[in-house]
Amino acid sequence: MIELAGLHKSFGPKAVLRGVDLSVPKGTSTVIIGGSGTGKSVLLKCILGLVEPDAGTITVDGRPARQGDRDAFLTKFGMLFQGGALFDSMPVWQNVAFRLLRGTLKMPRAAAREVALDKLRRVGLGPEVADLYPAELSGGMQKRVSLARAIAAEPQIIFFDEPTTGLDPIMSGVINRLIREIVTEMGATALTITHDMSSVRAIADRVAMLHAGKIRWEGPVGDMDGATDPYLTQFISGSADGPIETLR
């Protein structure tokens, strides 16, 4: 269970988050939608402590995120960065197995490699990519490697920042199903950012829309289509006409 209350974050004069309240129930899949540049990525980084919020509270499983053992806190999380953020000095399999090769989750190299190969297979990549370097892969392949890295240590809470951007429709379907499986089979809590409405329908238990620094609408995915909020309906229909400014 992740709870955000009154989260504020500005970069210089630019107020990005202006009082975000959101709760993400344990073992469910929540999707955050919203225009690009509205601060969705910043929101995830605040929860992980990569960006220091100006105000507000973040609690994870009832405990404030900034207190206690940081290592134990981060071990609960997996994160897929929007840009992939693969380590380009390491081959693909070492990227995926990064956590399993050092620190508290360290295991023998051969075993870690096996886990990496298994996770790569789950994101639709064969063993032939294991020894390539990230720079040798296409953007979509890098994204999937990064996804494999995020789930490699089987964390309890996983953040996916635009997991299907840059993928073809079939590969998007594979990734959507994978995210769904991680939640239903492994019981993980997932928080996903996406612009892709077919992804939203495939992944989400709950949907939250971020607009103008606040959660504009939140509810179960089933209520989304019946909702009357003009901002939400404009976003879902992808119309250029509506209350959301197209100049931002």
Partner: peptide, 19 residues
């Protein structure tokens, strides 16, 4: 090298991987 890692969020990624 480290600047590129910072800009491409690799340094953030290290942190989230408990390193």
């Amino acid at each position: 090298e480290l600047g590129t890692m910072k800009v491409t969020e690799q340094i953030d990624a290290l942190t989230t991987l408990s390193t």
